[in-house]
């Protein structure tokens, strides 16, 4: 494991912890898109089908369990928790997110590294992750006012993607036969989606003002 991969995993982990912290301690999910959280839960479920059959390392298994557990508990909190669910801005979160799944599934059936159920589901999760943030970005654009924790959550998610790209570049030059077009193209698209947000995040940080997106 290289430093970029570790930094990517740690920012990913931090993003999940920030979101759980917000939900658990403030008992609020204001500004958070349930649609995006549901897509992330599906992403992890379909990606980690090999959790018990393909052992890579203790680190890998624990991280997979954390991402699975946290994504499903976040969805549970927003949908079921007596207090938290009242802070959910349902009217601002209208993205028809399940429609995003069909193109991903069709693409995964036709463009994959191997045509087996596990491999197609894994590829599907890669495609779905690339666009899973869209409902959240649409919601941000609508509410415009973003509280600190929500801003940090999305910033950390974007940082995770950026570090993964550096990790791929590093691995390409240091490992033999490390070429994965599917993950790379999907990963770059995913990272580009955060570009706009990053711009405004850094602007507000530089000028020391509250993060607000333009209408």
């Amino acid at each position: 494991m290289n430093i970029f991969r570790l930094a990517g995993d740690m920012t990913h982990l931090a993003s999940v912890l920030v979101l759980l912290l917000k939900i658990h301690t403030i008992k609020s999910c204001a500004g958070i898109s349930l649609k995006t959280q549901e897509l992330f839960a599906i992403v992890f479920l379909t990606r980690y089908l090999d959790l018990f059959t393909n052992f890579i390392s203790i680190y890998n298994t624990i991280m997979k369990l954390i991402f699975l557990g946290s994504s499903f508990s976040i969805v549970w909190y927003i949908r079921r928790h007596r207090v938290v669910r009242r802070s959910y801005d349902k009217d601002q979160d209208t993205f028809r997110h399940f429609f995003l799944m069909w193109p991903c599934l069709i693409l995964a059936i036709f463009i994959n590294e191997k045509f087996t159920l596990k491999e197609v589901m894994w590829t599907f999760s890669i495609y779905l992750e690339a666009i899973a943030i869209l409902p959240q970005l649409v919601m941000l654009q609508r509410t415009r006012n973003i509280d600190n924790l929500t801003g940090q959550y999305i910033f950390l998610l974007g940082a995770y993607r950026a570090f993964y790209i550096l990790n791929w570049i590093y691995r390409y030059f240091t490992e033999e036969h490390y070429v994965h077009w599917i993950t790379w193209v999907a990963g770059v698209i995913q990272t580009l989606l955060y570009g706009d947000f990053f711009y405004y995040y850094f602007q507000s940080w530089k000028n020391n003002v509250k993060l607000e997106l333009p209408a």
Binding site: N167, E176, H177, Y178, T183
Partner: peptide, 10 residues
């Protein structure tokens, strides 16, 4: 067997 696998990533 290829040495680099994307399956060891999360």
């Amino acid at each position: 067997e290829r040495s680099g696998s994307s399956k060891d990533e999360l």
